[in-house]
């Protein structure tokens, strides 16, 4: 199995947002800035990687009739850990992400990967799968966060550094409000669909 191609699969074909269409709530809610997007993805990645490793390691012991409750307990344990770590060491980030850190537990991406991948594959491939999916999630969140932040505030400020500054006067404040999130993801999905249709037309 090729590690690099597995990770690329997580970013492209099995991309959690555009490929599998899972985990929409955090994607839209916390992407008001690139910084929040990175924090959210880091939390989700931690939970996804550990949940995949544990589910995969225990897959022979878990009776298949009660596997979903067991997956949820495993996931909830790691979410509680992330919740406490963030509250203790990154209080501003924790305040910005709010209720969405504990809500990682019902993020369909994690239980979806546990059920569809980790439950059937060995520990190492499950780990690689989790890394790939997390990378895909991070990139999409940063893209959406970047678009919203730059249009909404005219600049991208990440962890105290101003990355880009546009002379946007006045900035489109709507973009960092809830409608901006729907507009951004709708546009991105339309572009992805358009590219897919183009590819299909070329191939067939």
């Amino acid at each position: 199995m090729n590690v690099v191609s597995e990770i690329i699969r997580g970013i492209t074909r099995d991309n959690p947002i555009f490929g599998l269409v899972l985990g929409l709530c955090p994607t839209l809610a916390v992407t008001t800035s690139v910084e929040n997007a990175i924090g959210m993805s880091a939390g989700t990645a931690f939970v996804l990687i550990f949940a995949n490793i544990f589910v995969s390691a225990l897959r022979k012991q878990i009776p298949s009739s009660v596997r979903l409750p067991i997956f949820i307990i495993i996931i909830a344990t790691f979410v509680s850990i992330v919740d406490m770590i963030m509250e203790a060491y990154f209080p501003p980030m924790y305040a910005a992400l709010g209720v969405f850190i504990p809500l990682i537990v019902v993020n369909c991406i994690i239980i979806g990967r546990a059920e569809a991948y980790a439950n059937k594959n060995n520990v190492f491939s499950s780990f690689i799968d989790a890394v790939g999916i997390s990378a895909g999630f991070l990139l999409v969140l940063m893209l959406i966060g970047g678009i919203r932040e730059i249009l909404g505030t005219g600049q991208i400020v990440t962890f105290g550094y101003t990355l880009i500054s546009l002379p946007l006067n006045p900035a489109v404040t709507t973009m960092i409000l809830p409608p901006g999130a729907f507009l951004t993801i709708g546009t991105l999905m339309a572009i992805v669909n358009y590219k897919k249709a183009q590819k299909r037309a070329k191939g067939g």
Binding site: V21, F182, L183, I185, G186, T187, M189, A190, N193, Y194, K196, A197
Partner: peptide, 10 residues
């Protein structure tokens, strides 16, 4: 390419 999810989001 807009039908379906993109349309729902718009």
């Amino acid at each position: 390419f807009i039908r379906g999810l993109p349309q729902a989001f718009f």
